[in-house]
Simulated assay, not measured.
Amino acid sequence: MPSVPKLRLRTAPVHTLGFEAIGTQWSLSTAEPLAPETRAAVAELVDGYDRTYSRFRSDSTVARMARAAGNWKLPASAAPLLTLFDALQRLTDGAVNPLVGRSLEVLGYDAGYSFQPSGPPLRAAGWKDTVSWTADAGGSVLTTAAPVTFDIGAAGKGQLVDLVSALLAEAGLREYVVDAGSDLRQAGGEPLRVALEHPYDTTRGIGVVTLSDRALCASAVNRRQWGDGLHHVLDARTGAPVDTVAATWVLAADAMTADGLATALFFAEPQALASEFEFDYVRMFSDGRADYSPAMAGVLFT
């Protein structure tokens, strides 16, 4: 079972490459087999992303950030991710903040997967107070004023889906599905029908969406859950898990944006996010209510 709220119902591409990376199961479905050099390029891309951003390995750039303040060289792909985080922390009044990594560790979601809280919820360091960054053609430089535990989980997996999708397109593939658990991107061929997994009963769906040349990303409190009320969706302003929204699904042109907005919808109203982003959504509250964008009318089961 995938680790997030999405169930695939139908896929057109017939060749599938499966692998585990960045803590989740991936599958690349294509209309024709991947060439060995394309497989190798995907593996190199994913490993490089993990070496930069993983807070679960001691040799990553993020692990070094947690040990000392400084100037940190990041790849060129960091600029759009950091730009998105700038917008999300502003539109959610600080609730979405990639410095939430230390807050997750305190509650037990640490590098050793102890799942044992070491203290009460800890508010994340202020994004604007602690971090600045610049970018040029060679990459980005992130400057931290103090040691910080960076966690890009709010949008990073979505960005990696986009990067893998771009690699497949550059290899000449025009029909593919990149599936990273909660994050999907489809291109070409027959549209993909996807069931929206019920956050409180993983054997059921609450509706079905059709995905065609877009990305679908989701987040839910029932996944990566441990202890009483402890899960991975934290309000960075308090360090405490959110308890009013149970699950979100977002359709957008790219997976990074869809992933980030799926997290932001736990804290911000859709209208506020729509002032800067184009997307469709379904949001389910912990009391069973749901709201959705007009384009998603008819998606949910009655």
Score class of each variant (00 low, 15 high):
residue 95 A to H: 03
residue 128 K to T: 01
residue 47 D to P: 03
residue 76 A to I: 14
residue 85 F to V: 08
residue 120 P to K: 08
residue 55 R to D: 12
residue 122 L to H: 05
residue 34 L to T: 08
residue 98 P to Q: 05
residue 143 T to W: 02
residue 65 M to T: 13
residue 65 M to D: 15
residue 110 D to S: 09
residue 94 G to Q: 03
residue 129 D to A: 10
residue 119 G to E: 08
residue 34 L to V: 09
residue 118 S to V: 01
residue 98 P to I: 06
residue 32 E to M: 15
residue 49 Y to G: 10
residue 130 T to Y: 00
residue 83 T to C: 13
residue 79 A to D: 12
residue 117 P to I: 01
residue 67 R to C: 11
residue 98 P to T: 11
residue 82 L to F: 02
residue 135 A to T: 07
residue 46 V to W: 00
residue 84 L to I: 06
residue 108 G to H: 01
residue 139 G to N: 05
residue 139 G to F: 13
residue 135 A to L: 06
residue 122 L to V: 06
residue 121 P to G: 00
residue 74 L to E: 08
residue 82 L to G: 00
residue 31 A to Q: 15
residue 122 L to K: 06
residue 119 G to H: 07
residue 99 L to Y: 04
residue 102 R to P: 09
residue 67 R to A: 12
residue 122 L to T: 00
residue 105 E to G: 14
residue 89 Q to K: 11
residue 55 R to Q: 15
residue 70 G to A: 06
residue 64 R to W: 07
residue 78 A to Y: 00
residue 40 A to F: 02
residue 94 G to W: 01
residue 35 A to Y: 14
residue 66 A to G: 11
residue 114 S to Q: 09
residue 106 V to Y: 02
residue 104 L to A: 02
residue 81 L to Y: 08
residue 127 W to N: 02
residue 107 L to V: 03
residue 38 T to E: 09
residue 29 S to G: 11
residue 135 A to W: 00
residue 137 A to Q: 14
residue 138 G to P: 08
residue 51 R to I: 14
residue 124 A to E: 01
residue 51 R to F: 07
residue 119 G to W: 04
residue 70 G to W: 01
residue 85 F to P: 10
residue 71 N to Y: 08
residue 90 R to Y: 08
residue 126 G to R: 12
residue 51 R to L: 11
residue 63 A to K: 13
residue 139 G to H: 00
residue 42 V to Q: 02
residue 105 E to I: 08
residue 94 G to T: 00
residue 133 W to P: 15
residue 35 A to R: 15
residue 91 L to S: 02
residue 140 S to D: 04
residue 103 S to M: 07
residue 143 T to A: 14
residue 45 L to N: 13
residue 101 G to R: 01
residue 102 R to C: 05
residue 37 E to N: 14
residue 45 L to T: 13
residue 106 V to I: 12
